[in-house]
Nucleic acid binder design. Sequence first.
DNA 1: TCCCTTAAGTTGTCTAAACATCTGGACATG
DNA 2: CATGTCCAGATGTTTAGACAACTTAAGGGA
Lengths: 244, 244
Amino acid sequence: MISREGGIACYQQLSGILHKQIEEGEFRPGKQLPTETELSRRYKLNRHTIRQAIGRLQSEGLVYTIKGKGTFVANSKISYKVSRKTRFTTSVLDVGLSPDARLLDSYEISAGSELSRKLNIKSSDKVVVLEILRFVNKIPFCHTTSFLSSDRFPDIQAHIKGSFSLYELLKKHYGIEAMRASSSFEVSLPESSDMDMLQISSKVPVLIVKSTSKNSKGDIVEYCITRFRGDLCSITVNFNGEGR
Amino acid sequence: MISREGGIACYQQLSGILHKQIEEGEFRPGKQLPTETELSRRYKLNRHTIRQAIGRLQSEGLVYTIKGKGTFVANSKISYKVSRKTRFTTSVLDVGLSPDARLLDSYEISAGSELSRKLNIKSSDKVVVLEILRFVNKIPFCHTTSFLSSDRFPDIQAHIKGSFSLYELLKKHYGIEAMRASSSFEVSLPESSDMDMLQISSKVPVLIVKSTSKNSKGDIVEYCITRFRGDLCSITVNFNGEGR
DNA sequence: TCCCTTAAGTTGTCTAAACATCTGGACATG
DNA sequence: CATGTCCAGATGTTTAGACAACTTAAGGGA
């Protein structure tokens, strides 16, 4: 089964084999893979080598492991849509899943050079920071850090408590309809805070989306950084203005 | 330096330390990190543990390693822009870098169920597949697989040879102006073909963008899958129709 | 001078072994 | 019946050592 001559590393061969078996439905979503010791026996490889192979499958989002229990086949990715107008709550409801959110923290800081550029304000101006953890079907899905000018949104910290959606809040209390102006996409491995909040291992990449929103006149309303679980989502962007 | 009691794994502590040192400019881009054996001595950790820490930095795109030479600090990410109208060549020129492309392969297949849905054609229809490798400053940057209906673009395989940009070709030969309609973003670890073509190790994630382009009447022109080096790029999407 | 060999240094892969930490069930105790 | 304890089995981390593959530079022979 595993060739030692081909010049291809054993762990790469094994992860390829398991990848194929999962793809072909040999192991169904939710089902447990053979244990590391079992795979070690079956393929005549050291457990350490087995772990390298499984580590790759984890990073690909194909499987997840629970310490003390085992390794399981993951479900397929959630297709998450973004456009100028769509937001988290509507996007998740659209695909028939149940969204939820929790405000982790809110505080005020001085803008500094980078944020002042992003928000187009003075670097001495105050900025409200909102940290929100969002769930899909009770599973942590993404973590958003929002930055808004304190001057333009006075008392927003008081209003946000108990509110579901930040965008509804902006609309109702301040009469502003925020629309996504640009988003940048990056990839990284999780920092330890990501691992805690999103409940993932160090091998699952995170998709980092940095977005700027503007109001109808073109003024910058919000800058936010969202970190998605890479194993759970595929993000779709629609380029036709109205979006869906 | 490294605590054995805190409950935080040594390799995580070390990757945190190195991450900070790089961020603070202790190691400049392009400069070599201490060798694994040197770090092993310095932090009193096994070389295997050192490698786990460096593996994380690789996945974060902070460093890259060359077998037999060493580990080096990576340059900052290229900001790659996409919108309805921007394309690879213009986007790279915009940031002052030099783009290049090479046609790896072109062939014809039957659409099948998935492609027929993506291109809105019959599943028995023929589809032209173009595989293109793109470079920035001579460095492999992304790999694109394009699918186009053979019926709508006869002889495209003959025309593509020697042509720089697929989109100019569509415009000149077929009078069609292709515009990006939607793109989806996913994360994964590289397959072995990615590792070969993009010249990356197994620890560097790839950013997978699947795009559909339409003509001015709204007919689907092209479906393509592009796999970017996650350590090299951040992709920015502009939601205002005209884009830049 | 030019080319080849050699050796040292570096990263890549694999094995072996030990201990830590977590899960789940069996079992004893109240 | 409820609870706590213990143990087997699973994954997580770390160490030690070996060899392979690659890079670079030094040295030797034509």
